[in-house]
Amino acid sequence: MTIKEVAAAAEVSVGTVSNVLNRPNAVSDETRLKVLDAIDRLGFVRNAGASLLRGGRARTIGLITLDIRNPFFTELARSVEHTAREAGYLLVLCNSDENRTQEKRYLELLEEQRVNGVLISPVNERDNTLQWLRDRGTAVVLLGHDRRSFCSVRVDDVSGGELAADHLLDLGHRRLAFVTAPLTIAAYNSRLTGVRRALARRGLPDDACEVVEVGSLGTAAEGRVASDILVDDHPEVTAAVCGNDLLALGLIAGLLRHGIRVPGDISVVGYDDIELAEHSSLPLTTIRQPKQELGRVATNLLIEEGQRGAAHAHQQIVFQPEFVLRDTTAAGRRSAPRRRTEGR
């Protein structure tokens, strides 16, 4: 079965059938439904390989995440997959593990496959490979970064850091910790900036917040390492803001192992609002990112850029985070409790 036979059955031109398959927005609803009906009746299956040989692009998009083990990226990927599938695109999921070399290799592989576009949470948003992709006609949308020459979708992480710190300061805490993966990752750096802004508004210095930088991926295991550091080196800390929920959940597990009560002795705020944050044995106070909206909007921007090319106007979309109060924060003590390590 060929595209010519579909065109004849639908009584339209071959070009119209091609538009229905590749640029459905360019065709009226009535015509598109007529062509789709002919495709169903004839059992036509498009030959994507032939399209690529003619210099086209696959109806495929790539998603490169920093760490797919983090449920935030898993939930984001599900939203991207759903939106892509509804638009008739296949999703290829790649995991950079926050490794620049691995990220660059994935970008090259996706271009070799002639994907229609790439959604990426970049390890380094200034990498020239992203511009190289764009120059070759591949759409690129940045997740969690803001670069004017690209479409981007992100959350205002500075505001999120402020929300977390303001809550703890309102409770009376004056010695905080910021538990984070490497600050070379823009999102964590922005969240710390927000914490420091909240401190400055209260007339408190930057050193009222100890920065505890652990590991490389922001995992729960690294959060437990942070608990050892707080216990051994920072007994004055009465509250912690964590760069993500996994760090927060690991930190809480480690503190409890040391015999330190949460929130009785130390309050903890996470970031992301992954599903486990609400359903853990001690529901986590956190900052919510609108993961479903992030994925949906980013995917639609990518598809639009792939369809319109140079006519597409780049957009930088910024969502506001939301504070979620649960059970891991409480009023601060005037002085930090003596650290207990019986459970260590």
Rank of each mutant, 00 (worst) to 15 (best):
G62W: 10
K104F: 13
E98P: 03
L183A: 04
L119M: 05
A7L: 13
L302V: 07
A239E: 05
D272M: 05
E5N: 12
V155C: 08
R261S: 15
I39D: 00
N244R: 07
S159E: 12
A240Q: 02
G264Y: 12
G194Q: 06
L109S: 15
G117W: 06
N116S: 15
T286G: 01
L301K: 05
R224D: 09
R23S: 11
G250T: 11
A277D: 02
D67S: 01
A177W: 13
L301I: 09
V225T: 13
V35Q: 03
P263Y: 00
L143Y: 01
G270N: 05
G223C: 10
S152I: 06
I287T: 14
Q113T: 08
L91P: 08
W132Y: 09
L169Q: 07
R326C: 12
E278M: 05
A198D: 10
L130C: 00
V118A: 07
R147Q: 14
G194P: 09
A226P: 15
E98T: 08
S281W: 07
A220R: 15
G144I: 01
D265R: 09
L282D: 00
S51G: 14
L171H: 07
N116A: 14
I317Y: 03
G172F: 13
D127L: 00
E236I: 03
R100C: 05
V6N: 03
A330F: 09
S335D: 14
